[in-house]
Design a protein around this nucleic acid. Structure first.
Lengths: 192, 192
DNA sequence: TGAATGACTGACTAAACAGTCACTAAATTA
DNA sequence: TAATTTAGTGACTGTTTAGTCAGTCATTCA
């Protein structure tokens, strides 16, 4: 049955994610992933030819999920400012809902593994937002800077605010306020 | 002679840094570090009892260098705004002058290794800047936000701009302009 | 039915690894 | 000078690791 094999593949990825976040790539042998998942080592290598390919598959899957989740929210949106605000809020909310996934992406992106995936695969993830940025610049809503710089600024502010929110215990209400306030600040930074 | 032993210790740290950045912690065995440095494996373990301690020593050394380099520049500075500007510029310039070190810090900070160093050691690195932030808030120069949030914002903007500058080939002049422009934006974001 | 295919297994292996240890050589100290 | 300490060595080892492989079981297909 296909759904069962999918389940095992998924279970392996899920288990690997948790172990990678807890112990890092080094200290997470494939044997441990398989054991923890209750699946034979051979099965792991049946689905993923090498450990590297497991790690890369996991990255592409998680990154894809994040991108999709954010882009879905973008379609429902009207004004240019709303698009950027929604992108900011949704990125932050996704990262808070999925701390393990977010932590894994950070670990992967700052390791030499990043170089193992194609530059085009990275830019494909970034691509969907850029037209919105370009439009905002054309409309003279925001300052005229390189859209890649703008992307770096928004991503890293999201990362920074996530760091701050994760390091402290806030109520939902407080969290929400901080997200709103920091977006307001971000907008003030880039508006014309 | 002490300076010779220091040399070997330093050589090991230097070599480890380069290999860690190129291949990551996983794929850099201690044997390779020693070999590349032209030093016996035993000597590596004479200076660093375990591989983990080598990695952590390297982190503390590099982080300390960065902090010191930035703090030195801060002492010469007068107005509150100038302090924040200098902190921003110096952080960015250090990261551009020391790409390997910066890359290593990012890799380490986003890996589970970070948890292996004391929380007090981290806050000790951050501590020197916070009073300046507090003063700027008291003077009502900038908005009244948690200084830790402010620290996260400035650090991550530095990281983002570094990313952008490193990913493209700019002249010194262009680089300088982007640093100035992005600080101007940052200030606009936080000013009252 | 029975042949073929695909999912899955876990004992196994060859290589790689972190760390050890018995040792040397040189410098310090007494 | 003799004793002691300190820096440095590299062959070696026990363990861990990624990856293999011969084979099981259940389903599909002819």
């Amino acid at each position: 049955m296909q759904s069962e094999s999918m389940d095992k593949r998924e279970k392996l990825l899920q288990t690997a994610l948790e172990l990678f976040v807890k112990q890092g790539f080094n200290d997470t042998p494939t044997s441990k992933i398989a054991k923890e998942a209750g699946i034979a080592t051979g099965t792991l290598f049946y689905f993923f030819p090498t450990k590297d390919e497991l790690i890369i598959s996991l990255y592409l899957k998680v990154k894809g999920q994040a991108t999709e989740s954010i882009n879905v929210a973008l379609t429902e949106v009207k004004s240019t400012k709303e698009v950027i605000k929604t992108y900011y809020e949704q990125s932050l909310k996704w990262s808070l809902r999925n701390p393990n996934e977010f932590s894994f992406l950070a670990q992967f992106s700052n390791s030499p593994y990043l170089k193992k995936i194609g530059a085009d695969e990275i830019s494909a993830q970034i691509a969907p937002v850029l037209p919105h940025f370009r439009l905002a610049i054309e409309e003279q809503q925001i300052v005229d800077i390189d859209v890649n710089l703008l992307y770096a600024l928004i991503s890293n502010q999201v990362f920074g605010v996530n760091q701050f929110l994760s390091a402290n215990k806030f109520t939902k209400k407080e969290q929400h306020n901080i997200i709103q306030d920091t977006f307001f600040m971000f907008w003030k930074m880039i508006e014309r």
